[in-house]
Amino acid sequence: MSISDGHWRLDHLMEAFNLTSSGPPRFILNGIPGLEAAHIWISIPFSMFYIISLLGNFMVLFVVAKEKTLHKPMYLLLCMLALTDIGMSSCVMPKALCIFWFGFKGITMDGCITQIFFINILALTHSAILVTMGFDRYIAICNPLRYATILTNARIAKLGIVGLIRAVLFILPLPLLLRRLPFCTNRVIAHTYCEHIAVVKISCGDTRINRTYSLVTTFAFSGLDLTLIGLSYGMIIRAVLRINSKKANQKALNTCTAHISVILVNGSLILFSILTHRFGQGIAAHVHILLANLYLLVPPMLNPIIYGVKSKELRDKMGKYTCRI
């Protein structure tokens, strides 16, 4: 037996001892199975995406806060989106980078459940904000004369709070259902973070309720939110087609391009990740995990870039502060 094999067995014996020893339950986050040797290399793009995401979203928050001309419903929604983007990526990346760089794989049961709770709450809140953005574009195009009276900053803030309360109420059962599950000798999670289904899979108890509730919640809210966004854009297209001026048509559609781009980026990644994770039995495990991580990294990185490019007002203000640095 080689020295490296001896170290490998010793590490696994230590993990087994830590998992079965007395005290609070602990899990081992295994990173990306099959790509352990490439963890350091994988961490380079992951950390770059995370840094760009933080810089972009904090820049949006700073510029909107500083510029009174941007204190409008659309930019308030953009700030809400930036906060959820920062939250989602920050729930995952610090721990993932600790696994990649230092091999710190242990996580307590409470830590794992907390991570699941906040990731899912932020994801549902993020979806609710995208729905509100669709409603904002509908009012701006279909009823522009009443836009200022219908969508005030106070009303947008209330809609954001409603979206957050909705997320908390429907995600709260997830950690409660996880608490009732028994975990036997296998507490190794093949993931970079505590993804709900990945944790459920290692339980030695009956997980049918957990799986059903998670699946129903995911598809119900994804379906509902996508339907509401679709209705908003259906009415927008109908209103645009009634405009005789080609220039006016183009201007109206241009106001929606940023929101549509964000929806496409977010929607395609999350749906592909969910479908491959649940139904893609022939797809390698590392593909599932990479997709799950990219869903929490790529949209938060691209969203401020998309809005910065598409919104001239925001782009000009961001340029003013960037040039001062």
Rank of each mutant, 00 (worst) to 15 (best):
F279I: 07
G280A: 14
G280R: 11
G280H: 12
G280I: 08
G280W: 14
G280P: 13
G280C: 09
G280E: 09
Q281H: 09
Q281A: 14
Q281L: 05
Q281Y: 15
Q281G: 12
G282P: 08
G282E: 05
G282N: 12
G282M: 12
I283V: 15
I283A: 01
I283L: 12
A284R: 09
A284D: 05
A284Q: 04
A284F: 03
A285W: 15
A285E: 13
A285D: 04
A285Y: 10
A285C: 11
H286F: 13
H286I: 03
V287K: 09
V287S: 10
H288C: 13
H288G: 05
H288A: 04
H288F: 11
H288W: 13
H288L: 13
H288V: 06
H288R: 14
I289V: 04
I289G: 00
I289N: 00
L290F: 04
L290H: 00
L290S: 02
L291Y: 10
L291W: 06
L291P: 01
L291M: 03
L291E: 10
L291H: 02
A292H: 09
A292M: 08
A292W: 09
A292R: 03
A292C: 07
N293Y: 10
N293V: 07
L294N: 04
L294Q: 05
L294G: 07
L294R: 02
Y295D: 10
Y295R: 14
Y295S: 13
L296K: 05
L296Y: 08
L296S: 01
L297P: 03
L297V: 05
L297K: 03
L297G: 02
L297A: 12
L297R: 12
V298M: 15
P299A: 08
P299F: 00
P299Y: 01
P299W: 00
P300L: 00
P300M: 01
P300H: 00
P300C: 01
M301A: 04
M301F: 10
M301V: 09
M301C: 14
L302N: 03
L302S: 09
L302G: 08
N303Y: 01
N303L: 12
N303R: 05
N303G: 01
P304L: 11
P304E: 09
P304D: 06
P304G: 11
I305P: 11
I305K: 10
I305H: 12
I305W: 15
I306Q: 05
I306D: 00
I306Y: 02
I306E: 04
I306W: 09
Y307F: 15
Y307S: 05
Y307N: 06
G308S: 04
G308V: 09
